[in-house]
């Protein structure tokens, strides 16, 4: 009898991994209070499978909706990062909650790129599906693509960390788009949309 092996699961290489102590609440394995999402490649983008416990409860047995915002934001934001090699700051995000998400149950979040990956703004969408494949949350968001040079001023990095992360993002950009691989480590281009990061939620990680 012939058995069919499932296709191998590959994981996108997140540039933040070069920072030994990054503490992103969403995707760092080093934050004891975080949710430590791990991503895999998906035919439509990237995905993460997660199960949230009672620490993230809202009504009894129901995951807090704000945490689901973290999940979709992380998945969309990291998708943009691995596709562009640029840092993605969330500009706006909108969720539609279709059904309660249960504490302790397994779900998958899938993110897809929208329009504008080549411009200053990129849109993305995501959905969270339950074990039966039913959609329980949909989300759309807009991100501002920022070169590492610009982002560097807004995130707390030591000089060696900045060097490592800059190199990692350059590698990510090269892998994502070989034609543009020499752009990510260029000095900053004038950023006409650049305003103080008053309400930006840094999908870029903030090591402590």
């Amino acid at each position: 009898m012939t058995t069919v092996e499932p296709p191998p699961t590959t994981a996108p290489e997140l540039p933040w991994a070069v920072l030994e102590d990054y503490r992103c609440f969403g995707c760092s394995p080093h934050n004891p209070h975080g949710i430590a999402l791990q991503f895999t490649d998906h035919p439509e983008g990237i995905a993460t499978t997660f199960r949230l416990g009672r620490s993230y409860e809202s009504y009894p047995g129901v995951v807090h909706g704000g945490l689901l915002g973290v999940v979709v934001d992380e998945t969309m934001g990291n998708l943009i990062v691995v596709r562009t090699g640029q840092v993605a700051f969330t500009v706006s995000m909108r969720l539609r909650y279709l059904a309660p998400v249960s504490v302790g149950a397994e779900y998958i979040c899938v993110a897809r790129l929208g329009q504008g990956a080549d411009g200053p703004l990129t849109s993305a969408s995501a959905e969270i599906l339950d074990a039966d494949g039913a959609t329980v949350v949909t989300a759309t968001a807009t991100y501002r693509n920022v070169s590492f040079g610009t982002a560097r001023d807004r995130i707390a990095l030591s000089a060696p960390e900045a060097t490592r992360l800059g190199q990692a993002l350059t590698t990510t950009a090269a892998d994502a788009s070989p034609d543009q691989s020499d752009q990510s480590d260029q000095p900053d281009q004038p950023d006409q949309s650049d305003q103080p990061a008053r309400q930006d939620h840094p999908t870029a990680k903030e090591p402590q």
Binding site: R94, R96, L98, T135, T138, T140
Partner: peptide
């Protein structure tokens, strides 16, 4: 209500509208 919201979500995805 859940199924009808799924209809709405599918409609939004289909036409890329909010």
């Amino acid at each position: 209500s859940v199924r009808l919201l799924r209809v709405v979500a599918k409609v939004e995805q289909t036409w890329d509208v909010e």
